[in-house]
């Protein structure tokens, strides 16, 4: 698929370009940035739903840990330790608390890995090898109903907004 690539060296310019393109109803496929600029992210992305997954893992952790301690200490092998009742809830709090943090944490990381499909050794779909250094790469898909004039218009717009370089590139990105 052909894409229009605009290379910028300043995120303010990118933000302005995004605003202009949005006004003209042109969809931006992606922006590669060397740091998480909140203005770019706010304009382009949806809010991540990862935190909901975290809450779920946390709830699971609380229930699972409590049930496990209850089963081991009260049902399976009730052992009196230091004169405390077998159902010694106050001191279980610490274990439950720690397990909640641990499992929520692990759950969040797993969900993140699943959502982003990030794994060790993945090949990076690099569009421009300075996008992790000091360049901002704007990618606009050339849809089928886009005429050449429109493409030229977008290119001109990007150049007007201060893009260092604008080019067409064949990319396989989702």
């Amino acid at each position: 698929m052909q894409h229009i690539i605009g290379i910028f060296d300043n995120d303010d310019k990118v933000v302005d370009a995004i605003h202009l393109l949005k006004k003209q109803n042109i969809a931006i496929a992606d922006v590669h940035a060397p740091f998480g600029s909140h203005h770019i992210l706010r304009d382009l992305g949806k809010e991540s739903r990862i935190p909901y997954g975290s809450v779920l893992s946390g709830a699971f952790a609380i229930i699972a840990t409590f049930s496990f301690i209850y089963w081991t200490s009260v049902i399976n092998y009730p052992l009196l330790i230091g004169g405390k009742p077998t159902f010694a809830f106050p001191s279980w709090v610490v274990t439950i608390y720690l397990m909640t943090i641990l499992l929520t944490f692990v759950g969040t990381v797993i969900i993140f890995q699943m959502r982003t499909k990030m794994m060790f050794g993945n090949k990076a779909p690099i569009v421009h090898d300075e996008s992790t250094d000091d360049k901002f790469i704007m990618i606009i898909e050339q849809t089928k109903d886009m005429t050449d004039q429109q493409v030229d218009k977008i290119k001109k717009l990007l150049v007007d907004q201060g893009a260092l370089e604008v080019k067409m590139q064949d990319l396989q990105i989702a």
Partner: peptide, 14 residues
Amino acid sequence: MGWVGSVKNWIRYE
């Protein structure tokens, strides 16, 4: 892990 700094990368990461 195949990081390129795309919008989705950054949003989920943050």
